[in-house]
Structure formats: structure tokens, C-alpha cells
Amino acid sequence: MKGVKSTNMDHLAPIVILGGVKFDLAAIIMVIVTSIVAFVLARLSVRNLSVDNPGKLQNFMEWVVEFVSNIIGMATDFKRGRVYLSLGLTLIIYIFIGNMLGLPFNFITEAHGHATFLGMDLFMNGEEEAHFAWWKSPTADAAMTMGLALTVIVISHIQGFRHNRKHYLKHYFEPWPFFFPINLIETVAKPLTLGLRLFGNIYAGEVMIGVILGMGWVGIPALLVWQGFSIFVGAIQAFVFTMLTMVYIGQASIHEEDH
């Protein structure tokens, strides 16, 4: 399945340099593919919307909505957390599809000395020979998971500051003012753990698939098992990411009166 000849050499990301800035073509392609898959899936599920006779896809999507609603209900108060339902849905669908996309196959090109893509030179890292990996999970890239993580963390801070200003500012100095540095570290650690957890799980899964592929034919049962496990891990990580997003947003922006 994987068009790989040797795993001895690291697969390079197909990077082009535009105006002195590096762009990772594989990442861009995968982000676009994942987004398109997610959008098409969502569009298909709402194509024939019906109140009393929903189709299979609509049922499935409604189940996802209920699922995310339950996540929000667990993390915060659903009535006030309702505005984040779309965010949670987008997150879980995008991350899940992203996690799954990297599993079934890979697409690798070999280059010797020089490679171009649409007339743009690919960055070869100074090597004579390189393998470019064009297909991977968008969530198997630390910068991209950190993008997702920081997005939701920034949202949680903004919403906390807007809707819950007094308690939001106060929580940096709790339980005592000299806890401020610790709270600050926690604030910084939140997006880091959120993004790197997702990245680590999915990247490790892909690395493991590469390693198993290196075993040749002997590795096929192990590959099957590992891919199955990766589906499980991908689903769990999508759930965890969404859950933690809602927990963080809830902590920051929704203050419970009886608290």
C-alpha cells in the first residue's frame, strides 16, 4: 500500500520557499483535503434535511451533534455552552477525519538532485537524494496541532475576558496572589499539552506504521492491528481534544454562581 522502497531515509516534507518563507505543500494539501472531506461529509448529511424522516447521514450527523452536546454538557453548562456547539463539531469532525486520513496509505515521490512542484523548487535540505511524503495526517504535524490548540485556547481567553471578566482575572491570583507564576505556567501549559498530545499520538502512530512497513511482508498482521488501534487512538484523540477545549472554555468563561 505504501509506495515506499526504503525507510532508512527520512521522508522529507515537500517544502517550497516563497519570498523567503517556507511553505509545506504536503501540509497545505492535507489541510485542504481534510477540510474538503469534512465539508462534503457535512453537506451530504444536510442535503435532504427532514424532520420526521432523516436519512442515514443525517442521523449520523445528528448523533455527532448529540455527542458533542453531551461533551459540552459534561464540561460546562450546556445552555451557556451552546454557542460553542459549532466549534466543537468542527473540531471533532476535522480532527477525526485528519487522524483517519493518514492511516490507509501514503504517497511518496523520489527525487534526485532536483525537484519541482508546479514550477516551484522543492527544498531538498541540501541532500542529493530525497523522498518526499505528500500524504500524512494534518494532525501529525506539531505546528498544525498547535495552531488548533492555540486557536481554541485564545478563544477561551477572549470569551473568559469578555463574559466573565472579574472571575477570569481573579483566577490568576488564586488561591493566593503568589500563585500567579504557577497559574501563568498553567496557562502556557494548556495549549502546549493540548496541541502536543494530539500531535504526539498521531505522529507516533504514523511513525509506527513506517516502522512496521520496514518489516516487509512479515509485518502485515502487525500493520492491520496497528492501523485498527490507530483508528481507535484517532477517535479518542479527537474526543479528548474537543472535550478539553470545552473544559478550558468552560473554566474561563462560565462562572458557576454556586461556586
Binding site: V31, L87, T90, G147
Partner: peptide, 19 residues
């Protein structure tokens, strides 16, 4: 690749709006 960060953020924002 740090540009991936912005690519992801922008793409996610667009996907969120569209969805």
C-alpha cells in the same frame, strides 16, 4: 514549518465558518 501553524489556523477558521 511554522507557516503550517498559520495555514492550519486560517483553514480551520474558514472550515468553521463554512460548516
Amino acid at each position: 514549518t511554522w507557516t503550517n501553524f498559520f495555514v492550519q489556523v486560517i483553514a480551520f477558521g474558514i472550515l468553521y465558518l463554512l460548516l
